[in-house]
Simulated assay, not measured.
Amino acid sequence: MSERALVEPQHRTSRRVYRSDVRAARKRLAGQIRKTPVFHTTVAGPHGPVPVTLKLEYLQHGGTFKVRGSLNALLESGTDTEQVVIASGGNAGIAAALASARLGKACTVVVPESAPHTKVAAMWSYGAEVLWHGTTYAEAYSYATDLATERAALQLHAYDLPAVVAGAGVVGLELEEQVRGRPPVLVAVGGGGLVAGIATALGRRQQVIGVEPEGIPILHAALTANRPVDIDVSSIAADSLGATRIGDIGLDIARRYDVRSVLVTDDAIATAREYLWREFRVVVELAGATALAAVQSGAYIPADGERPVVVLCGANTDLAVL
């Protein structure tokens, strides 16, 4: 189970996130994160080789881009925060645990019973307290909220928090320095934090395209309805891209910067991940291969002379699945 969005009777009113917030996050994160490299190559497409630039974000500390957001949120909160609580079944919990350990804070991750053991083990490895509660992320989130109040702890959100989105957006600032021109950037969509952060960093200077499994089209559904829409999740990538609705911040930014949504099949995602291992010996989780699946399957067809950027966003997976 992933960071599935809780359907709340009263939705939070989130502060807007701007490029200035992302630039502030980059200063805050200096020396705390890796500036992950890019790799210019070609990949197999439906009609022959396709030039791409791979952003190797799976090399980030903790194997996930989410460390950027967690560290930014904790650094922004100041020194008064000694305890951190988050509800997560996956990478957000790993990121919060790592960030808390790095800054000497106690971290508790509330996970649903279905949380993958591989990811729970990673949370433990960074010293987090892991508490199981409920069978869904919504139940875990509700318990985490109560726990944060009881302990007077800082509660992080997996993707719908301004500091988390701004931290993720530093990926976009790095791409401006690493890649010539202004090619489109393809990004997998979970709750919307990464695609929103990158879109905020790049603004209208570059097209940002969200790539989603056909069985989890939260951005696509929200853009179609012009509001967040709850959906049923059905995809092999649900362990990390399984939010049931787009975050408020993610939808606001998608509207502001005309972020597109492209849908891919589960077969295309599995094929892309296997291809990365076979051709490049790159190990990513299914979410990490989702953006590449759009290029390889033909769901996204680059224009003549275009070399799109494809973000490989995470690598927390069981090696036995390859």
Rank of each mutant, 00 (worst) to 15 (best):
Val109Thr: 10
Thr135Tyr: 10
Ser125Thr: 04
Ser114Leu: 12
Leu103Gly: 08
Pro116Thr: 07
Ser100Leu: 01
Thr108Val: 13
Leu98Ala: 13
Ser142Phe: 02
Ala140Leu: 02
Lys105Leu: 05
Ser125Asn: 12
Arg102Trp: 07
Ser125Arg: 09
Arg102Cys: 03
Leu131Pro: 03
Ala101Asp: 14
Val110Met: 05
Tyr143Leu: 05
Ala101Lys: 15
Thr135Gly: 14
Ala115Gln: 10
Leu98Cys: 09
Val130Tyr: 03
Gly134Ala: 02
Glu129Pro: 04
Tyr143Pro: 00
Thr135Leu: 12
His117Phe: 07
Ala101Ile: 03
Ala115Val: 06
Tyr126Trp: 07
Arg102Pro: 00
Leu131Cys: 06
Ala138Asp: 14
Ser100Met: 08
Ala101Pro: 12
Ala122Trp: 00
Trp132Gly: 00
Gly127Leu: 03
Tyr141Ser: 13
Thr135Arg: 15
Thr135Asp: 14
Tyr137Asn: 12
Ser142Asn: 11
Trp124His: 13
Thr118Glu: 08
Ser114Tyr: 08
Val111Thr: 15
Ala101Thr: 10
Val120Pro: 05
Ser125Gly: 10
Arg102Tyr: 09
Arg102Gln: 14
Tyr126Lys: 02
Glu113His: 12
Val120Met: 03
Gly127Tyr: 08
Val109Phe: 10
His133Arg: 14
Leu131His: 01
Ala128Ser: 12
Thr136Gln: 07
Ala115Asp: 06
Leu98Phe: 14
Ala128Lys: 01
Val120His: 04
Arg102Lys: 14
Thr108Arg: 13
Tyr143Ala: 09
Gly104Glu: 11
Thr135Ser: 14
Val111Ser: 13
Val109Trp: 03
Val110Cys: 01
Thr108Ala: 06
Leu98Pro: 00
Thr118Phe: 04
Gly104Leu: 10
Ala138Gly: 08
Arg102Met: 15
Pro112Ile: 04
Ser142Trp: 08
Ala128Gln: 04
Gly134Gln: 08
Ala106His: 14
Cys107Gly: 11
Thr135Lys: 15
Lys119Phe: 01
Pro116Lys: 11
Leu98Lys: 10
Ala140Gln: 05
Ala128Val: 00
Pro112Glu: 06
Ala106Leu: 11
Thr135Pro: 07
Thr135Trp: 11
Tyr141Lys: 05
Val109Cys: 10
Ala128Asn: 02
Gly134Lys: 04
Val111Asp: 09
Tyr141Phe: 11
Cys107Arg: 10
His117Pro: 00
Val120Ala: 04
Trp124Pro: 02
Val109Pro: 03
Val110Gln: 05
Arg102Val: 13
Tyr143Asp: 06
Glu139Arg: 02
Val111Ile: 13
Met123Trp: 00
Glu113Cys: 00
Lys119Tyr: 03
Leu131Phe: 03
Glu113Asp: 13
Leu98Thr: 07
Leu131Trp: 04
Val111Met: 15
Val111Tyr: 07
Tyr137Val: 01
Glu113Thr: 12
Val111Glu: 11
Glu129His: 12
Pro112Phe: 03
Thr108Asp: 08
Ala140Val: 01
Ala121Ile: 02
Cys107Pro: 03
Ala122Ile: 00
Ala122Gly: 02
Val120Ile: 13
Thr118Cys: 09
Ser100Thr: 05
